[in-house]
């Protein structure tokens, strides 16, 4: 469908409505990032940038990240603003379908996890656990463009 992008994560080919996700995030970016006062900590980009991940590890990192966002982020991002909440759930649905598709590819052993991706994801989880659940979830959601930029 229009606005769908085909991503090649190693041997896994996954399509995602990127234009829709980007538009949804752009609409709530300022609102969500304003709720995150912590400048000195990033969940995704420091100390190790996603952009330094080897291409052989892209699939496994993507698989972990989609699980991370579906299981640990979206559900803890309830706000008092119904418009923002609707946008969040629309993004969450796109991520859910990506999670399933990548999960199937992972189960067919096509999405191998190397040492580097395991380390990288461990760091992401450590950053996440360094904050209380709500702050960590809001910060992760505010960094969605970092994930989307990396995917593209």
């Amino acid at each position: 469908t229009a606005g769908n992008t085909i991503f090649h994560f190693g041997p896994c080919r996954i399509s995602m409505s990127m234009t829709e996700v980007r538009a949804g995030f752009t609409a709530i970016k300022a609102n969500i990032q304003a709720r995150d006062p912590i400048r000195t900590l990033s969940i995704l980009s420091h100390p190790h940038s996603l952009h330094k991940v080897k291409s052989s590890d892209r699939c496994c990192i993507a698989h972990h990240l989609f699980n991370f966002y579906v299981d640990k982020v979206f559900k803890h991002c309830k706000t008092e603003d119904s418009y923002v909440n609707r946008k969040i759930s629309s993004i969450a649905n796109s991520f859910l379908s990506m999670k399933r598709k990548l999960g199937q590819c992972h189960e067919q052993n096509k999405c191998m996890c190397g040492q580097e991706s395991a380390e990288k994801f461990k760091q992401i989880l450590a950053n996440y656990k360094g904050l209380n659940v709500t702050s960590a979830a809001i910060k992760s959601l505010g960094e969605l463009d970092i994930l989307l930029d990396w995917m593209e």
Binding site: G3, T5, M18, T19, R22, A23, T26, D145, L148, D149, E152
Partner: peptide, 11 residues
Amino acid sequence: VSAQIHVTTPL
């Protein structure tokens, strides 16, 4: 002739 640049994502 006139032209514009268009990037789909990010938009």
